[in-house]
Design a protein around this nucleic acid. Structure first.
Lengths: 129, 129
DNA sequence: CCTGGCGTTGACATCGGCGTCAAGGTCTAG
DNA sequence: CTAGACCTTGACGCCGATGTCAACGCCAGG
């Protein structure tokens, strides 16, 4: 299968696939004419990469999953390295959510404060509240 | 006050301050020698910008707060425009948290699935569990 | 006068994941 | 033979908020 077909099947662009290759994630046998020739394993690798990227993984983080597939496993997350990335990611998410919660609380507080402010500095504006 | 002093007081770099100016956020009177000359209001504006950026606001989003301060208000969030940005930001945070939660759940699911996987494909590894 | 520490503008570098254009090679159908 | 639909590599553009360097001006102290 050539790159255009792979791109369509995976739901991405040929540019993206070539980029993954440049990063050493997607191997490529070459046909006699120099065209890239992908097989079913490559298809699964590409799909794994895409789904992880879509979820919010960095390209680098997909590497263990790719290696795992290439090692002959049925799933990209069948290896401890990959599972470790899952765990790291969950921690990152927890941290992120925590920070967002903190910011959210802060903003809610500011909203309250701003409201009081307005009531104090412009009491005449409280016509219909 | 000159730019170095302002940068130190605000806790940022002179480069950043010049950048804010290039974006039309931080005005600058000039001394006779061409040096930027900042006053107390500028200090407050710069601090407002920094604290918002630190929280996760984009520079563009600080504009209403700056305008509000420049308009003579005691606080940058004393104006409806600024408050509107607060609200938008809170919504963004909620959306973000929601997506993160979804991804987190998905990852937890994958972890479970991966665990079963291992138990199925390598039952002999369950020596001391 | 000279050094060193401030200031000035301008412009290129960074990070990630591509988009997009350029200039060409390859293959197939008509 | 030729159009056109694919492929190739290479390289620059983008986004945001700076870092960093260059090359220069200004000014106070020894």
């Amino acid at each position: 299968m050539r790159i255009g077909e792979l791109a369509e099947k995976v739901g991405t662009s040929t540019r993206a696939l070539r980029y993954y290759e440049s990063q050493g994630l997607l191997g490529a046998r070459r046909a006699a004419n120099g065209y890239r020739d992908y097989d079913e394993l490559d298809l699964r690798v590409a799909r794994e990469i895409r789904s992880l990227l879509d979820i919010g993984f960095a390209l680098e983080e997909t590497r263990p999953f790719v290696a795992c597939l290439r090692a002959g496993n049925a799933a990209g997350d069948a290896c401890p390295d990959a599972v470790a990335v899952y765990r790291r990611k969950i921690e990152e998410i927890d941290d992120c959510v925590e920070r967002l919660h903190a910011v959210r609380s802060h903003l809610e507080g500011q909203l309250e404060r701003a409201k009081e402010h307005k009531e104090k500095t412009c009491p005449r504006l409280r016509r219909n509240t």
